[in-house]
C-alpha cells in the first residue's frame, strides 16, 4: 500500500488553539480539514509536514447560517451539506451545483468547502508518486527546476482545480482568515496569485474559518458547468460558474462568469456581462449575447497541457460549456456536465 510519511496529529477544539498550533513552526505544520486532497498528496510525498493540525474537532468551523442577510458557511462544512442545503440552493445555486460535482459521494462527505477553496493546484507532472516524479527528474512545482508543461517555462502553471472557487467568486464571496494576529476578511478574488506553486496570497499557516456570501440586492440566476471524462470522481478539465442578475422583467442587469482548471488561479471572464446586460432572458438578443459571451470566453481562456487531457479540446469546449451554463442558469437548471 502507498504509505503516508510519518507525522503527528494535533486535535485542537477552538480556533485560538488551532491558530497557536499553526504558528509554531511554519512549513513543518499543516492544516488537515477533510484530508481528501492532502492525504493523496502526502502519499505522493508532495507534502511531508512533521505535524498535522486537524480541524475536525473545531466546532466553530462547521455549519451554514444566515447572518445579517449574508450566507455564512463554516470552512469545515462538508461539501455534500453545501450541495444539499436548501439555503445554498436558494441563495447560491451555482455553488450548490459545483459542490455537488466535486469528486464522488464519499469524498463530498469527507471534503469540506474550506478545503476545496484552499485546494492545492494540480498538474499531470506533479500529482504523481515520488518514484514517478523522480524518474521524470521532478518539476518546477516540487523538488525540481524544469517545467514540463511549458518547456523552458520558469513559472509554475499548475491549474487551480477547485470546482467551488469559481462559483464562490461569481457570488463575490469573502473569506475570513485567522492567525496569531487576529482575524481578517478578504475578497476571494484577492486570495489568488498566478503562481502554480502556491496560488494564494495568504500563507498556509493562516486558518480559513468561514466563507461569506454577501446579500445580493437583485435577484440572480446561477449555474456551474464542468467538463470531465466521467460522471463522477474526476477533477475538472474545465469549469465555469455563471451568475446572471435580472430585474423583475427578466432583463439582465449584470452577469459574471468565472473559469477554473485552466491556469494557476480561477479567473473572471472580463467584460462577460456586457454581451448580456440589457437583454431579456430567452429573447433573440439574449441568445445573441450568449454567443458573444461564449466567444469572449473562448478568446480569454487558454488551457495549457497542465491537467490531463487534450488542451486544444479543452479550449474548444470553453465556448460550448460557457453557452450551456449560461442557458442552464437562465432556465433555472444546471449543472452542466456530461452525465
Amino acid at each position: 500500500m502507498l504509505r503516508l510519511p510519518k507525522f503527528e496529529v494535533e486535535k485542537p477544539t477552538t480556533v485560538d488553539e488551532t491558530v497557536a498550533l499553526l504558528s509554531e513552526k511554519t512549513g513543518d505544520v499543516m492544516i488537515i480539514a477533510g484530508g481528501t486532497d492532502l492525504m493523496p498528496n502526502m502519499k505522493h510525498e508532495l507534502f511531508t509536514p512533521k505535524k498535522l493540525v486537524s480541524l475536525a474537532g473545531v466546532s466553530a468551523l462547521f455549519g451554514i447560517r444566515e447572518e445579517a442577510g449574508a450566507l455564512v458557511i463554516g470552512a469545515m462544512t462538508p461539501l455534500d451539506q453545501v450541495a444539499n442545503h436548501p439555503l445554498v440552493a436558494e441563495r447560491a445555486p451555482a455553488l450548490a451545483q459545483a459542490a455537488g460535482l466535486v469528486a464522488g459521494p464519499q469524498l463530498r462527505r469527507m471534503g469540506t468547502l474550506g478545503g476545496n477553496v484552499m485546494l492545492d493546484t494540480r498538474c499531470q507532472w506533479y500529482n504523481q508518486t515520488y518514484f514517478w516524479r523522480k524518474s521524470l527528474g521532478f518539476c518546477l512545482k516540487k523538488d525540481g527546476s524544469a517545467c514540463h508543461v511549458i518547456e523552458g517555462g520558469s513559472k509554475c502553471v499548475a491549474a487551480a482545480s477547485n470546482d467551488t472557487a469559481p462559483a464562490l467568486m461569481s457570488l463575490d464571496a469573502k473569506l475570513t482568515f485567522a492567525n496569531a494576529d487576529g482575524q481578517r476578511e478578504l475578497l476571494l478574488d484577492d486570495l489568488w496569485k498566478s503562481d502554480g506553486i502556491f496560488n494564494k496570497k495568504v500563507p498556509p499557516s493562516d486558518l480559513l474559518t468561514e466563507i461569506r456570501l454577501p446579500q445580493r440586492e437583485v435577484k440572480h440566476l446561477g449555474a456551474y458547468g464542468k467538463l470531465r471524462d466521467r460522471g463522477s470522481i474526476d477533477f475538472p478539465l474545465f469549469g465555469v460558474a455563471v451568475r446572471i442578475d435580472i430585474d423583475a422583467n427578466d432583463v439582465v442587469v449584470d452577469a459574471e462568469a468565472v473559469s477554473v482548471a485552466l491556469q494557476a488561479r480561477p479567473t473572471r471572464i472580463r467584460k462577460f456581462g456586457e454581451s448580456l446586460v440589457g437583454t431579456t432572458l430567452g429573447s433573440p438578443e439574449f441568445e445573441k449575447g450568449v454567443q458573444a459571451a461564449a466567444s469572449l470566453g473562448h478568446k480569454q481562456c487558454r488551457p495549457m497541457p497542465n491537467v490531463p487531457g487534450d488542451h486544444e479540446y479543452r479550449h474548444a469546449m470553453v465556448p460550448v460549456y460557457l453557452k450551456r451554463t449560461i442557458l442552464a442558469a437562465a432556465a433555472g437548471a444546471g449543472p452542466v456536465h456530461a452525465v
Binding site: G104, W132, S135, L136, R230, S232
Partner: peptide
C-alpha cells in the same frame, strides 16, 4: 514523451463508474 506511464492511478486511468 519521457517513456513514463501517463497516469498510473485509478484517477487518471479512467474506468467507468455507474454513471458511465
Amino acid at each position: 514523451r519521457f517513456g513514463l506511464h501517463s497516469g498510473p492511478s485509478l484517477l487518471d486511468y479512467r474506468i467507468p463508474t455507474t454513471l458511465d
